[in-house]
Nucleic acid binder design. Structure first.
Lengths: 210, 210
DNA sequence: TTTTGACAAAATCATCGAAAAGTGTCATAT
DNA sequence: ATATGACACTTTTCGATGATTTTGTCAAAA
């Protein structure tokens, strides 16, 4: 597991900060390891501190408490996902390939690994309980990224928004929801990838200007 | 809430029987009311018996226990959903209308109301814990119904299965999963209907022979 | 400055027994 | 035939207890 080196922007109680700091990176990484093997409740600050190579007291110099760390991790995931999807969709690929790669980039990330861990259920609860706001904002950002892309492609005449009567946001929202649905049977990464690819093909065909 | 008058077929521990019997109908209806307002755990056999206008002892003449009642309710939902979807898809409508009506018929039913009740989470857990087999079989039946329809339409040249390389079952499965995804944000019935309609349009466009 | 050991406060856990509620199955009454 | 009251049994609930763990914040050491 790698990739804990991007910019993380906090909100609400959590201060605005970055994970550029190698210490923060180490903490998030240690927290990820601990959460995915023990779950949220069973992970103590001691566990995380030890994993990050520091004392528990030092940990409190960086994060207010366990919830704060989890929220930061959630924020990190969405920042990462948004960046990746944005990168893919900015690459001016054919519709089908763009959606396929965007879906893949979005699915195979940090949080997905967390949620498919042995304690996935509890971590999902935790996500809703402690970072519902971040998740909601993150989903909204993702929807916005897809919607922008749809509008761009529509403007250049490569896609038609007739399906949603021109409403790019509604279409993007439905795309996201449908994509989430593929995760409900807790499929293997491979099965998920293939279903996501199929779904990408469906949306591509539905959108292509004929 | 109405519609407890169809044939219910049990399996496993549950005996094969029907809900034609007005008593059974009354029991299922009472159970539905109780489950949706108290949740599964907090609903006692006494509650259901009273709601169905009989003594608790009489209830045991019809169902082995609470789990049995819940399983029967699950079975009832799927039988109903399959019948409705089958009816819609047998009506030889245009692709878009067929999917739209099928999605609607499938979503606005008994179980959907249960799961969007105040105790939706617990009831969802209950469903997985006590009737995962029925749910899985039901989902499979639904997928099969859609897959059959896809094959029929493909044979008559009205749809193309190119998106899934000719695999009707995979396509049907992805359709179902995507449809499930629309429920994750716990939308209002109206919002769900509109998202389902949009999704139906997307699949219709992707499938239409051009 | 930066980190930590140590402390007090808080939360969690296991255990207990008594009270309450719920379950399943009779013998009996309608 | 059906349905029910009543009985024995099991499960849940609750409050109280103390041991244990965890948390958050210091003053002090490196």
């Amino acid at each position: 597991m790698d990739g804990f080196c991007h910019t993380v922007r906090m909100q609400g109680q959590t201060d605005s900060t970055t994970a550029q700091d190698p210490r923060q990176k180490a903490i998030l990484k240690a927290a990820f390891e601990a959460f995915s093997s023990y779950g949220f409740r069973r992970t103590s600050m001691e566990d995380i501190a030890r994993g990050a190579g520091m004392s528990r007291a030092a940990l409190y110099l960086h994060y207010r408490n366990k919830e704060d760390i989890f929220r930061s991790l959630t924020q990190f995931y969405y920042d990462d996902a948004v960046a990746q999807v944005q990168a893919v969709l900015g690459r001016d690929l054919p519709i089908g390939a763009a959606l396929d790669q965007a879906f893949a980039a979005q699915g195979g990330q940090i949080f997905a690994a967390l949620l498919s861990s042995p304690h996935g259920d509890e971590l999902l609860d935790t996500k809703y309980a402690h970072s519902a706001d971040i998740a909601q904002a993150g989903e909204a950002r993702l929807v916005a990224v897809y919607a922008d892309w749809l509008r761009r492609e529509a403007a250049s005449g490569r896609v038609s928004l007739d399906v949603s009567a021109g409403d790019a946001a509604a279409l993007a929202g439905t795309m996201m929801a449908a994509l989430h649905g593929l995760k409900s049977p807790r499929p293997s990464p491979d099965a998920y990838r293939s279903a996501a690819g199929l779904l990408a093909g469906v949306f591509a065909r539905a959108l292509e200007q004929r």
